[in-house]
Write a protein that binds this DNA or RNA. Structure first.
Lengths: 235, 235
DNA sequence: TAGTGGTCTAGACCACAGG
DNA sequence: CTGTGGTCTAGACCACTAC
């Protein structure tokens, strides 16, 4: 099981702090040579480290030392950028597309809308320390946010909703599961198809109990740790 | 990219409902032959399907069609067995080990204990529909549950704590992240080392706000989906 | 243009599972 | 004992990245 040994050797190098996050590893050919093995075996080690979250890859660009995971506390309302800033990380958000469409099955279901209702949908790419770590698909009830698409969609959305339409999120419903990147999303965040991902879906509900936005976030699996506090009401 | 095509072919077979959950796939050699490729490429496809959660493997036994994920709602107190039963699934819990030790760094930290405090620790293997899906490590303040180790530890723990020591969990702190199985845990649940996993850590806190138990759950990544509802107090 | 990662082939040996 | 999955070798070609 030399691929285990290789994995551990690389792991030690990383954890000893020799290598800064974001550093590119040597090429697979060089690594396989220095470990006296073949690329196939070496890639086995790299895949393990990727699954472990210690390294990640950018499609056709190579392997890089992973950054520390961002910690997100789901128990409080949060904006990606402010959470990151509080942890000393830099962020950027990029609008991928925006459109007005007939709601699909998922969005109408989560937003409790009748079929064929208009929804605004848009996709955003989120960067952490210069690296794309998450892709978010948004679905918003069109009747609640008229002309949404005329506003800038690459900033803090909750502020936008509040300022222009007096909408606040009073509660959220989350669903979290492990998944992988499909072809389309992988290419948007320069990941490889099939790479491990964390899928977080979120329904934002206003004070009146009406679901107004449905978001599906696709995270590079090692980029985030979710925290939450739950208080049980007396039974 | 034939491994994509093979992946999709197998995926279709599974999703068309031809194959029941838990069914073993044909051997890798047979599959690679019928897809006219090599085992290396075929295993690439299988790995993708594993990451996708459609199949899983048991070490050296082969590949199996995955069951549907268990949905767990973290917002309410729950027992593994009752949640599963409500979803029509059968469960079993097995005690792996139980011991009294000096708390390690992690457990003393999460339980807010001074160093060198005694804690009870035990491990449990959780089965869903006959398959091992999760391994849980428990750390409990010894002073709160005297003689804990003399009681049966393969049942519902919250009932046990309540009946014998009048302990209730009033709130929980969760932390969720993607990870992989290490050698030890993999072998306990017959997974393979490095297979994708979901790591859920939980601190149970009583009515007085004292942390009494720290639990780390290691889930086969496709075996569970986490739901939660969060209400934000007015700001 | 040179080198890289992504993909693929055609074998091989071993330890373990299951009969 | 047979067949299986786990591991490994020594190549190869292509499309893309980085220069």
């Amino acid at each position: 099981m030399q691929y285990i040994k290789i994995k551990n050797a690389i792991k030690e190098q990383i954890q000893s702090g020799q290598l800064a996050a974001g550093t590119k590893l040597p090429s697979e050919r060089k690594l396989s040579e220095s470990f006296k093995t073949t690329r196939v075996t070496l890639r086995e080690s790299l895949s393990l480290l990727e699954a472990d979250g210690l390294i990640y890859r950018e499609d056709r660009r190579g392997w890089f030392i992973a950054h520390q995971a961002l910690r997100i506390n789901l128990s409080v309302p949060f904006a990606f950028s402010s959470v990151a800033k509080a942890q000393g990380r830099s962020t950027m958000t990029e609008l991928d597309f925006a459109d007005s469409v007939m709601g699909n099955k998922e969005s109408t279901q989560y937003l409790s809308l009748p079929p064929f209702t208009e929804v605004f949908t848009f996709g955003r790419i989120h960067y952490l320390d210069g690296k794309a770590v998450m892709y978010a698909e948004h679905y918003v009830r069109a009747d609640r946010v008229p002309n949404l698409l005329q506003y800038p969609l690459d900033g803090d959305l909750s502020s936008l909703y509040r300022e222009h339409w007096q909408l606040n999120t009073a509660s959220c419903q989350y669903s979290v599961r492990s998944s992988t990147f499909d072809d389309e999303i992988a290419s948007k965040i320069k990941a490889t198809m099939g790479a491990p991902a964390l899928r977080i879906s979120k329904v934002n509900i206003d004070e009146a109990g009406i679901a107004q936005e449905y978001v599906v976030e696709h995270w590079r699996h090692n980029a985030v740790t979710l925290d939450m506090a739950v208080a049980f009401t007396a039974l």
